[in-house]
Design a protein around this nucleic acid. Structure first.
Lengths: 362, 362
DNA sequence: CGCTGTGTTGCGAGCGCTCCCGTCCCTCTC
DNA sequence: GAGAGGGACGGGAGCGCTCGCAACACAGCG
């Protein structure tokens, strides 16, 4: 009672605090807090009254104070690994954008928001934001950021299975081997005799697994591997690599490109060499872009289902944040989808119903 | 001295606090704070010592506490308006992704991070995160979120000039009228006699300004407007609208498409009608996508320079957060760039050097 | 009339920092 | 040798909220 009644320093400046609401409603701070958060056992009348006063004053609780007190910020980090000099690609490929969007929606639906953070960054940025957990896209081997986060006891869920022995809480990924094998079989079934691969020089798991799957398949069916690798983060290098691939003496009659822009790259290269698609060259690439539905010809694409992945990743993370700490990593595999278009089908397949030569079955 | 020496409750659990560092370094909490933040006047020896102890203990300052105390969170909201049912497009068009990426980098460089937030959202999500300011992409007329933020005294900078009388702190935009006029002139110079427009049904300023500019231009040069509008958020509607446009009895011999996918849409439609590009139909669309460099033929695009916009928006916002509150809105216009490719040039323009008929010069 | 039960409400102690000051002590000056 | 000056550090009050627990009112019961 001593000086509690005086309206504090600047008083009439800035936004209303919980104190002001309490005073205006004639109740205690605790009651306001309880009323607004649906806690405690207050009669509905009180609750309503407080709520009413609160939004008459335009009261908004201070997120900082709440976070400090409760230890939960409702913030989830979204991290993309750096490519080359650019802070992160994020958009070079529609995949990231789609994934991020789905993740954002999923987080929002559960009351969380996403904070975009670069994987390689000085500590100060990371420690300037109170995170409840982090989503890491495509973590690199022994990622220092991930280790640090885990050390701090924050749950980390990765999109893409972690390389090495990264101690992530959970991960979500596609079955890249199965996807590649499926495509190769698809191409072979369409009549391909020598299937080439356009791949990357980086060492992330996606590239690794896909390339390995290709090599294994080649060995199994007895085909010599025909592939070109290029730094995937360089948009120009793709066109060059596509050109190289089709310029080879052992030119493939079908190509699978691992990266989003490869479709147009390969199409352009094919034109340069006078190759008709799909007649002389079958084409498939991994992409989320809808432009391939309208290219000439439309190109068969493999979708990694970024939306499902983004959603799954966030669900797992929030489960880990809120729920019981499951002791072993949770792993989730999302199926891919092959969207078959003209580029991977021999014209109508009328004349010859069965593929010309099916290389080694099983 | 009563119980200050006891190491607090759980003590050995959780992360080290500033208290632990102080104790371990044999200095006061204040000294630790000052040493770590480069404030106060401490000898370098002390500063080094404290820093060393701090990271021996793996100390990370609590962002929540700092935010609560200082009132600055280092967090900037990034908001996209909702289209249709989808939370927000964000990625439908490469523009948003590019812009968001540039904004992220710019923010990071100044020690801020971006929080992705939907424009239409219940208060609870917004008030759950302590924002220092907000970037709003394409704010709609009388956007309630913007008003609310401004009412709270937060600076708001918009990408796209605010419709109505939205009280934003600053905005960045392209000169859409000039851009459209430039394209129309470009097409006319390439020999177009009847230029069509593929536009949107929504009422955002981009669509509005662009369409109006088109109509004005038509009136000025005495051409009957030929356009089709469709809901831009629907990816399928674009192809249909493109088709409609080319099916018209007064079929245009050149088309400008306002939205990213329009290039492929129009190209596909042209093929359906047996129109050769650019011989029978000149094509330009507004897009940030690089696929148009490799289509058949490559398509001329207008770039809105999302990177520059994203950067500018963030700079203005952070200036507003940190610097002097400038009393009137700051406005910044970013020039567009027309990337001329085959689709908007008559074949080599050799036979006829000057355009067949230049409609009304100035 | 005291005692327990039930239903409401408030006290007060922090969450982990930052920052305004005050204190202490050492050095310099006249 | 005393006072002034200034460099080095620490005390302590919060920032605005949440939450365990205590307090209080009022009923019924023995």
């Amino acid at each position: 009672m001593s000086r509690a009644e005086t309206p504090r320093r600047g008083s009439r400046t800035s936004r209303a605090g919980i104190r002001d609401v309490a005073a205006a409603a004639g109740v205690s701070i605790t009651t306001v807090s309880d009323a607004l958060n649906g806690k405690g056992r207050l009669p509905d009348a009180t609750r309503r009254h407080v709520r009413e006063v609160a939004d008459r004053l335009g009261y908004r609780p201070s997120a900082a104070a709440r976070t400090l007190r409760t230890g939960k910020s409702g913030l989830i980090g979204l991290t993309v690994t750096t490519y080359g000099d650019e802070p992160f690609t994020f958009t070079e490929f529609a995949y990231f954008a789609e994934m991020a969007r789905a993740a954002t929606s999923a987080a929002l639906a559960r009351g969380y928001a996403l904070v975009i953070l670069p994987a390689t960054s000085r500590h100060d940025v990371w420690s300037n934001v109170a995170l409840d957990g982090t989503v890491v896209i495509d973590p690199s081997d022994h990622d220092p950021v991930v280790s640090e986060l885990v050390r701090q006891g924050l749950p980390v869920v990765s999109d893409g299975r972690p390389a090495g022995s990264l101690p992530v809480t959970a991960w979500v990924d596609n079955d890249h081997e199965a996807a590649v094998l499926g495509i190769l079989d698809h191409l072979a079934a369409a009549g391909a005799r020598r299937i080439g691969l356009l791949t990357g020089t980086s060492t992330d798991t996606y590239t690794n697994l896909s390339t390995t799957a290709y090599l294994n398949w080649c060995e199994r069916v007895g085909q010599d591997p025909v592939y070109e690798a290029y730094p995937a983060h360089d948009p120009c290098a793709g066109a060059v690599a596509a050109d190289r691939l089709l310029a080879r003496p052992d030119r493939p009659d079908a190509v699978y490109g691992l990266f989003d822009p490869n479709g147009t790259d390969l199409l352009a290269a094919a034109r340069r060499y006078g190759l008709r698609v799909p007649d002389d060259l079958l084409l498939v690439c991994c992409s989320e872009s809808s432009v391939y539905a309208n290219t000439e010809p439309p190109i068969t694409t493999l979708s990694l289902k970024p939306r499902r992945i983004g959603t799954a990743v966030v669900q797992l993370l929030i489960d880990a944040i809120e729920g019981v700490e499951s002791d072993q990593p949770v792993e989730q595999v999302i199926p891919t989808e092959l969207i078959v278009r003209t580029s991977s089908q021999r014209r109508q397949a009328r004349p010859i119903v069965s593929p010309p030569r099916s290389p080694g079955q099983g």
